[in-house]
Amino acid sequence: MAVSGISGVESMLQQMRALVQAAQQGVSDPSELSPTVSSSQAATSFADELSKSIKRISDAQLTAKAQAERFELGDPNVSLNEVMINTQKANIGFQTAVQVRNRLISAYNTISQITI
């Protein structure tokens, strides 16, 4: 799950870089600008990737919580190691989401201060 989250973030960053480069060069469509952006990446919007990432983080948190509850109730199929690892994965995913949010807010504030 962590790999797909990282690739989602990398995809978002690549899209953001392409949009910045397109804006700097005055191109309306970033896919025309760089051949490194594939058609599948261009078709997926930043909002869609962000939404998917938030859903994955939420699912990881719910899974970790359910697994912890099963461990607390004495389910022999759930080990403490699994509970701790999945809880940490959910925590890292959440921290990553908070950092992405902070970066987005910072970028928005920077852009809003630009005079036209």
Results as ranks from 00 to 15, higher is better:
2 A>Y: 09
2 A>I: 11
3 V>E: 15
4 S>A: 12
5 G>H: 01
7 S>T: 15
10 E>S: 12
11 S>W: 02
11 S>Y: 00
11 S>Q: 11
11 S>H: 10
12 M>F: 00
12 M>D: 00
12 M>Q: 00
12 M>V: 00
13 L>N: 04
14 Q>R: 13
14 Q>T: 03
14 Q>P: 00
15 Q>D: 01
15 Q>R: 13
16 M>K: 08
18 A>W: 01
18 A>T: 02
18 A>E: 03
20 V>T: 11
23 A>C: 11
23 A>I: 05
26 G>E: 03
26 G>Y: 05
26 G>H: 01
27 V>P: 01
28 S>C: 02
29 D>H: 10
29 D>Y: 05
29 D>I: 11
31 S>V: 15
31 S>I: 15
32 E>T: 14
32 E>H: 09
33 L>Y: 07
33 L>A: 08
34 S>N: 11
37 V>S: 10
39 S>M: 13
39 S>E: 15
39 S>V: 15
40 S>D: 15
41 Q>C: 07
42 A>H: 15
42 A>Q: 15
43 A>T: 14
44 T>R: 13
44 T>E: 13
44 T>L: 12
45 S>R: 11
45 S>L: 07
46 F>G: 07
47 A>Q: 13
48 D>G: 04
48 D>N: 10
48 D>M: 09
48 D>Q: 14
48 D>A: 13
49 E>R: 13
51 S>H: 10
52 K>M: 06
55 K>N: 06
56 R>C: 02
56 R>V: 03
57 I>T: 14
57 I>S: 09
57 I>R: 11
58 S>A: 08
60 A>Q: 03
62 L>K: 08
62 L>C: 01
62 L>P: 00
63 T>D: 05
64 A>N: 05
65 K>P: 03
65 K>S: 14
65 K>M: 12
66 A>M: 09
67 Q>N: 10
68 A>Y: 13
68 A>L: 15
70 R>W: 04
73 L>C: 04
74 G>V: 01
75 D>F: 03
76 P>E: 01
78 V>A: 03
79 S>M: 02
80 L>W: 02
81 N>D: 12
81 N>F: 07
82 E>M: 04
82 E>I: 04
82 E>Y: 01
83 V>G: 02
83 V>N: 04
85 I>A: 06
85 I>P: 01
85 I>Y: 03
86 N>C: 02
87 T>P: 01
88 Q>L: 08
89 K>W: 02
89 K>H: 09
90 A>M: 01
91 N>K: 12
91 N>F: 09
92 I>N: 06
93 G>C: 00
94 F>N: 07
95 Q>C: 07
95 Q>V: 03
95 Q>P: 02
96 T>S: 12
97 A>R: 08
98 V>N: 06
98 V>P: 00
98 V>R: 08
99 Q>T: 11
101 R>A: 07
101 R>W: 06
101 R>V: 05
102 N>P: 01
103 R>Q: 05
104 L>D: 01
104 L>A: 07
104 L>K: 00
108 Y>W: 12
108 Y>A: 12
109 N>Y: 02
110 T>A: 10
110 T>E: 08
110 T>Q: 08
111 I>F: 05
114 I>G: 13
